[in-house]
């Protein structure tokens, strides 16, 4: 008798969990609507006394946010492109074989990622300066950030390649395909979903790239939105509701894209290539 109710009970539990989890996000939006002093009110108000939406257009124009967001998009796209180009092949090889050398390879991919960006930025700055790359600051940031994003991508995509049966590739080789041919016509299409999803995840996380951008990109017109956000944190004043409004403008588009794509993201990763 209780059987049909179980799924609905699960739905309720799931929604409750989601509500708890999403609370910080809700708090960001609510805080952005509050006035400067209501933010400090004790006890805090769960719903703003009066909703002041004017902060949004204010912040948008005062901070030239369309420029910042465009730069964030460019940088994230560049990082994703480089990561996919270098990372996919690397992951494929690391999934295909099993020997000491590739163990070392996989090991170094992880090891090379260990230093926090904050301590890597000084040597990179020095090197970029030597090679004149500081004159192309966004490119420089893309290169540096791609190296940070790569290990994660390689590990995930390697798992995707593991789900492609080797027999299929071997059959293609028997049929007279070259390795290159088999890779492009058999293996890649089968792993396409996984790669695509990992690329989207890479894009989303590099959309928030901050530490490299703030040091390498000096001209405000070329900076991404994360650097623009840090401009609110002054020595003696912190404009909290503007920060929250800025954050909301910053994350809302990417959240929207994400919510639209999330079914594909999850199913792309969870279904594997052939299941």
């Amino acid at each position: 008798m209780t059987r049909p109710y179980v799924p609905w009970l699960l739905v309720v539990v799931a929604l409750a969990l989601a509500a708890v989890y999403l609370f910080p996000l809700y708090w960001m939006y609510v805080t952005s609507f509050k006035s400067g002093s209501e933010i400090f009110a004790n006890p805090p108000t769960f719903w703003p006394r009066e909703i002041d939406l004017s902060i949004y257009p204010n912040v948008w124009t005062r901070r030239t946010m369309h420029v910042f967001l465009w730069n964030s998009t460019l940088i994230a796209a560049g990082v994703t492109a480089i990561t996919v180009i270098f990372g996919t092949g690397c992951a494929y090889v690391l999934a295909r074989y099993r020997n000491v050398w590739l163990d070392i390879g996989l090991f170094s991919v992880l090891m090379l990622q260990v230093l926090p960006a904050s301590v890597m930025v000084t040597p990179l700055f020095v090197a970029f300066n030597q090679f004149g790359l500081l004159n192309y600051p966004r490119t420089a940031v893309v290169l540096a950030a791609a190296a940070k994003a790569m290990p994660f991508f390689v590990v995930l995509v390697r798992a995707t390649f593991m789900t492609v049966p080797r027999e299929l590739e071997e059959a293609a080789l028997v049929d007279g395909n070259s390795r290159v041919g088999a890779f492009f016509s058999i293996v890649l299409p089968l792993a396409r979903n996984g790669i695509l999803v990992c690329a989207i995840l890479t894009f989303m996380s590099s959309f928030g790239e901050y530490i490299y951008s703030k040091s390498i990109i000096q001209a405000p017109a070329l900076q991404p939105a994360s650097v623009g956000l840090s401009g609110f944190l002054g020595p003696n004043s912190t404009d909290w509701n503007a920060i929250m409004a800025y954050s909301a403008i910053y994350v809302t588009p990417i959240l929207a894209v994400f919510v639209l794509l999330q079914r594909r993201i999850v199913s792309g990763l969870t279904s594997g290539a052939l299941k």
Partner: peptide, 20 residues
């Protein structure tokens, strides 16, 4: 259960939020 994958998708929100 109904909506499992949709609701699960919501839990990925912190992935796209910048640490700052």
């Amino acid at each position: 259960f109904p909506g499992a994958s949709t609701i699960r998708g919501l839990f990925l929100v912190s992935w796209v939020m910048p640490g700052l």
